[in-house]
Computed example of a mutant assay.
Amino acid sequence: MTTDTMHYPVPSALGSLDNYIQAVNRFPLLSAEEEHELATRLQRHGDLEAARKLVLSHLRLVVAIARGYLGYGLPHADLIQEGNVGLMKAVKRYDPERGVRLVSFAVHWIKAEIHEFILKNWRLVKVATTKAQRKLFFNLRSMKQGSGALGESEIQEMARTLNVSEHDVKEMEVRLYGQDVALESSSEDEDEHFAPIAYLAAPNADPTDHIERSERDHLASHGLSEALASLDPRSRHIVEARWLNEEDPATLHELAAEYGISAERVRQIEAKALQKMKAALAA
């Protein structure tokens, strides 16, 4: 059977993961000659049909690789989906003239995509960032014996095998097996479930409160000084004596006696000054 006559049925509606796995296992495997022919057509002519056949014939490989990462608690379907992305990248970059089968070349790309997906989604806080941490992350689970804490001999052996420090091994074990804690309780019974958000939230963390405080502080310092500077000396003195002297604010009659005018006139000057200051602060 040539690659042109091979049948690659793609189910339009698989319904479930089990159906998908059964479907991909029915795709025919390629011989070395068929694989070389398709890869050459893709490389030289950009033949998308050849690329499709190369991808479909290797989907079962992705399923098998993804199954090995089920211990990280992520959905099998999601792992397969990410692995398929890696497979497509491998097919695009595959060079049939190097004498290496696509299955061997694609393993690296499939695992790389799955690794990246796990690191981004397995914990809200990233557990591994450097190359050494990633290697430790994906080997710690398989190298660990039993479900208990690592013993000193295990830590030393892992550190030596993976070429990392013993401190890194201990820290990664804490990251790997530590449990995520929900910030907010899922229960309405606050006495029974005291969520961290209740005692971790900063009392002044609300952005609106922060902006209001910032504006209030600005008005109390620079804004008020600028508004007072816009007044004539008499009006400024009246406002300061009436409103800014907290210990002994002046009365209208006291200011009237000081300036030799009526208390009503002082009230008018005060009202006009306050209106002018309000306009200056709003500007």
Rank of each mutant, 00 (worst) to 15 (best):
T2L: 02
T3D: 14
T5L: 07
M6W: 06
H7P: 05
P9A: 14
P11L: 14
L14D: 01
D18K: 06
P28L: 09
H36L: 11
L48H: 12
L48T: 15
H58Y: 07
V63N: 07
A64Q: 14
P75Q: 14
D78F: 10
L79I: 05
V85I: 15
P96F: 07
P96A: 01
L102I: 07
F105C: 04
A106E: 03
A106Q: 09
A106K: 10
V125Q: 11
A128Y: 10
T130K: 02
A132N: 04
K135C: 09
G146L: 08
G148N: 02
E154L: 05
E157V: 07
S165Y: 02
V174M: 03
R175F: 05
R175T: 01
R175E: 03
L176D: 02
Q179I: 09
V181F: 05
S185T: 13
D189G: 11
Y199F: 11
L200E: 08
P203A: 14
A205T: 12
T208H: 04
R213G: 15
S214A: 07
A220M: 04
S221F: 08
L224H: 03
S225T: 00
L228P: 05
A229Y: 06
S230W: 05
P233T: 02
R236C: 09
P249F: 12
T251P: 11
Y259M: 12
G260F: 03
G260A: 02
S262N: 10
E264R: 14
A273T: 00
Q275C: 05
K276N: 01
K278F: 04
A280V: 08
